[in-house]
Measured scan of single mutants.
Amino acid sequence: TIDDAFRAIERAIQAENEGRYREALKHFLDGGEMIVTAAEKEASQKVRNLLLHKGKEVLEWAEHLAEWILE
C-alpha cells in the first residue's frame, strides 16, 4: 500500500541519516517499487501519473545512492 511505501521511505531516510547506507538503499528501493505497484492499480489517471512520478523519483534517488556506495 501507499502507507507501507511511505513507511519504507521514512525508514530509508532515518537509516541514511544514521549512516546505514545499504539499509537505506534497500528501504528506498522497497518504497519506490511499492509506489509504482500502487500506481499500476490506480483507477484515476491523474493519481496514477502522480504516483508514477513519485515512485520514479524515489527509485532514481536509490540509484544515485547505490552509485555513491560503490565509489
Rank of each mutant, 00 (worst) to 15 (best):
T1Y: 08
T1M: 13
I2F: 05
D3W: 14
D4N: 10
A5D: 04
F6D: 03
R7W: 03
R7V: 06
A8H: 11
A8P: 00
I9K: 00
I9L: 07
E10C: 13
E10L: 10
E10K: 08
A12E: 00
A12M: 06
I13P: 00
Q14L: 09
A15K: 03
A15G: 04
E16P: 02
E16R: 12
E16A: 15
E16L: 15
E16Q: 15
N17Y: 09
N17K: 14
E18A: 12
G19A: 02
G19S: 07
G19Y: 01
R20E: 03
R20N: 08
Y21E: 01
Y21D: 01
Y21F: 08
R22L: 14
E23Q: 04
A24D: 01
L25R: 03
L25N: 00
L25T: 00
H27S: 05
H27W: 14
H27L: 15
F28W: 15
L29M: 08
L29P: 01
L29E: 02
D30N: 14
G31Q: 02
G32A: 15
G32T: 09
E33A: 15
E33L: 14
E33T: 14
E33K: 14
M34T: 03
I35T: 01
I35D: 02
I35F: 14
A38C: 11
A38G: 04
A39H: 02
E40P: 03
E40G: 13
K41M: 11
K41F: 09
K41N: 11
K41R: 09
K41H: 09
K41S: 10
E42L: 12
E42H: 09
E42N: 08
A43S: 12
A43T: 14
A43L: 13
S44N: 14
Q45N: 07
Q45D: 13
Q45Y: 07
K46M: 12
V47A: 06
V47S: 04
V47T: 10
V47E: 05
V47G: 04
V47Y: 06
N49G: 07
N49R: 05
L52A: 07
L52S: 05
L52E: 10
H53E: 14
K54Q: 07
G55A: 15
G55T: 04
G55V: 13
V58A: 13
V58S: 00
E60F: 05
W61G: 00
W61N: 01
A62S: 02
A62G: 03
A62Q: 00
E63V: 12
E63R: 15
H64E: 12
L65H: 00
L65M: 04
A66C: 15
E67C: 12
E67P: 00
W68G: 03
I69D: 03
I69A: 03
I69E: 02
L70V: 13
E71D: 13
